[in-house]
Design a protein around this nucleic acid. Structure first.
Lengths: 208, 208, 208, 208
DNA sequence: AATGAATGAGGGTTCATTCAT
DNA sequence: GATGAATGAACCCTCATTCAT
C-alpha cells in the first residue's frame, strides 16, 4: 500500500514536471514551435517517457490544458469567495499578473483541436458546469452590490471580461498610470466618468 | 519604357497574388502550419518563384505584414476623415467585420520575430510616424466632440481600443443583442449607464 | 522438492502462455509487426517477464519455432504410424487445416535469421535427424504400397510435398470442388487421369 | 517539346531506379526490414526524392507491385504467344528463374494492405481483366493440345500453377536432376508415370 | 524570370531493451 | 521472480531552401 503510494506519487511527480515544462514552453513559444525533445530536456526525462505518460504531443497538450482549466477555475472561485470588495475581486481576476495563459483561449483551442471529440466534450462540459456557474455567481454578486448594470446580459458580460482577462503579458509592459487608466476604462468605458481621486479609487467607489 | 512597365506590372501582380495567398493561409491556419508549398499552389506559382520574389518565408511574412499595416492604416484614416458621427467612426474601426487579421498583433509579431532588427525598426517607425498620429487625431476629435473623457492618456486609449479591435472572428459568433451590449460596455464600461433606447442608440448619444 | 516442482510447473506454464501468445500473433501479423508489448499484453505478463524467460525477441522467436518444429514432427509421425490408407495419410499431412504456420518455412527462417549459427545448427540437425528420417519413412511406405513412383528422389518428393504443405490459409478460401481438384492434381499432375468418381475418390485409388 | 521529353525521360528514369532499388531490397529482406534510407542510398537519391516521387513508403510499394504485375503479365503473355510446344511454355512460365517476386503474392498483399481500397480495386480489376483471360488462354491451349485434363476447373488449375510459380529462390538451390523430378511431378503428380527417357523429356511428350 | 527536381535538418513516434523497485 | 518506469536508436515523414535547366 505504502509502496503503491510511493509509485503513484513518483509517477504523478514526473507527470507534473513534464506538464510544467510543457506549459512553460508552450506559453513562451507556442505549441508548434516547441518540440517534444525540448520538453523532454526541460523536464529532465527522455522523449519516450513523455510518450509513455501522455501518448502523444497532442494528448500532452490536452492534458496540460485541462489541468490548467481546473486550476484557473479554482483561482477565480477562491477570489470570488474571498472577503474583499467586489471591484477589487474583478480587478484581481482580470488584471492579475498570474502565469501566462496565452494558449488557453477558445480561439486557440478551436484552431488546434478543430474536431477532436474529447476536447469538445470537455470544453462543453467545463463551460456548462464550471464556467457558467462561476459567471453567474460573479454577475449576481456584482448586480446585488450595484457594480454591474442590471441590463447587461451574462453573455455580453463574459465576453467583455474575456477581452481583458488573461492578457498578463500585455499588462506587464504598461506603466502604473496607464494601468490605472485601463482599469478605469474597464469600469466606466470611453465615456464614463473617472473617479475624482485616482489614488483612492477603491474608496470612492460605492453603491452608485 | 512601356515594355518595362509591362514587366513591372506583371511582376507586381504576381507578387501581389503571392501576398494575398500567403495572407489568407496565414490568417486561416497560422503562420507555422502553412508551408511554402501550399502558398505556391494557392498562388499558382512554383515555390522557387516565391523565393525569387521574397527571399524566404520570413521575408514573405514580413512583407505581408508591412503591406497589411499600411492598408489597415489607410482604412482607419479614411474612416476618420469621413463625415459620420464620431461614435459611429469608432464603431466602424473597432467592430467592423473586415478581413481576419488574427496574425497581426504585437503578441504575434513579438513571438515570431523576437529579435529581428528589421521588423523592430519598422514597428518602431510605423508606430511613431503612423499609429501615434492616427491615435492623436482620433483622441483629439473624440475629446473635442465630448466623446472621450479628457483625463484618459492616449496610451491607455490605444491599449483599450486594441483589446476590441481586430477580433472579427470573435464577433462573428455573437448574436445582435449581445453585440450591442458589447458596444455599450465598450463606451460606458461595466458601471456606465447604457443608452435608454437600445434600438436608437446612435441618436441618444450626445454630449453627456 | 514438491515445492520446486510447483515452481517449475508455474514457470513452465507462464513460458508456455508467452509462447502461445507469440505464436498466434506472429502467425497472424508477421514477426516484425508484432511488438513485445503486444505479446506481453496478450500473455498477461509484463514485458520484462518475457525478457527474463527468453532473453530477447529473437530468442523468443527461435524458441517458438523450435517448439513448433517438434510439435509438427510429432503430428506427422503420428499420422504416419496410424492405421489409415497411404493416400489419406498424405492428404492429412498436406491438406490438413491445422493451425497456421505461415512463418514456419525455410524462406522465412533464412530471411529472418540469415546467419544465426544457433538456428543454422538446429535447422541442420533437425533436418538430418528428424525431417529426413520422416521423409524416408513416408517414401518407403508410399513406394512399397505403390503410391509413389519409384524413380522419384526423396529430395524431389520432399520439395514437392513442401509446396503443398503448410498452406492452410490458402486452402481455407477454396470451395470443396476446387479442393478436390487440387488433391487430384497433387496426386496425378496436370496430365494425370483424374479418378472416375470424384465422390469416392479414396476407394477408386489403387495400385495403378 | 523536346525539352519536356527530356524532363519526362529523366524523371521516369529516376523513378525507375528507385523502383528497381526498392524491388530488390523488398524482395531480399522483406518490406518492413527495408528502410526508406536504404532504398534512397541504393538508388543514389535522397530520401526526400522518394517522397517527392511516390508520396510514402506504402505508395512506393504499391507502385512497385503494380508495375511488377504488368511486367509479369507481359512476360507470361509473350511466352504464351510464342511458337514453342505447350509443355515448354508451361515450364518457362513456372520454373523460369526470373527475378524474385517473393513479395508478389496474394498472401502478402492481403496481409500488408488489408483494407487499402486502391490496392483492392487494382487487384480485382487486374485479376478480372488480365489474369483470368490469361489463364483461360493457357487452359484452352493446353486442353486443345491434350496437355491438360479436361475435367480440371480453371480455378484449380490456377491455384496449382500458383504453388509452383514465383518460387525462383527455391528452385535456385536444387540440382538439375531434382529440378527435373519436380517438373515431372508437376506434370504427372505423385502417382503419374514419369517419362521413359528423362534426357529427352520434351521430345517424348506428345499428345498422350 | 520561372520551374521541376533535389536535399539537409529536424520532428513526432515506435520499439526492443534495461533500470530500479 | 515480476513489474512499472525509463531509454537510445531508428524510422517515416515534412519543410524551408537550393540546384540545374
Amino acid at each position: 500500500m505504502n509502496n503503491m503510494d510511493g509509485f503513484q506519487r513518483r509517477r504523478e511527480k514526473k507527470k507534473e514536471s513534464i506538464r510544467r515544462a510543457a506549459l512553460e514552453l508552450f506559453s513562451a513559444h507556442g505549441v508548434q514551435k516547441v518540440s517534444i525533445a525540448e520538453i523532454a530536456e526541460k523536464a529532465n526525462v527522455s522523449q519516450v517517457t513523455i510518450y509513455n505518460h501522455f501518448g502523444s504531443k497532442d494528448e500532452l497538450l490536452k492534458d496540460v490544458l485541462i489541468q490548467l482549466a481546473y486550476k484557473k477555475y479554482e483561482e477565480y472561485n477562491e477570489i470570488l469567495e474571498s472577503n474583499i470588495p467586489f471591484p477589487e475581486k474583478i480587478e484581481k481576476m482580470v488584471f492579475n499578473k498570474r502565469e501566462t495563459v496565452k494558449m488557453f483561449n477558445e480561439d486557440f483551442l478551436n484552431a488546434y483541436f478543430s474536431n477532436d471529440p474529447e476536447i469538445q466534450a470537455f470544453t462543453e462540459d467545463f463551460y456548462n458546469n464550471t464556467t457558467i456557474p462561476l459567471i453567474r455567481k460573479i454577475i449576481e454578486q456584482g448586480k446585488k452590490e450595484g457594480y454591474i448594470h442590471h441590463d447587461i446580459s451574462s453573455d455580453a458580460f463574459w465576453f467583455y471580461i474575456t477581452l481583458f482577462i488573461n492578457r498578463p503579458e500585455l499588462y506587464a509592459k504598461l506603466d502604473k498610470t496607464t494601468m490605472m487608466d485601463i482599469t478605469t476604462l474597464f469600469f466606466y468605458g470611453l465615456l464614463g466618468k473617472p473617479p475624482i481621486e485616482k489614488e483612492h479609487r477603491h474608496i470612492s467607489w460605492g453603491h452608485s
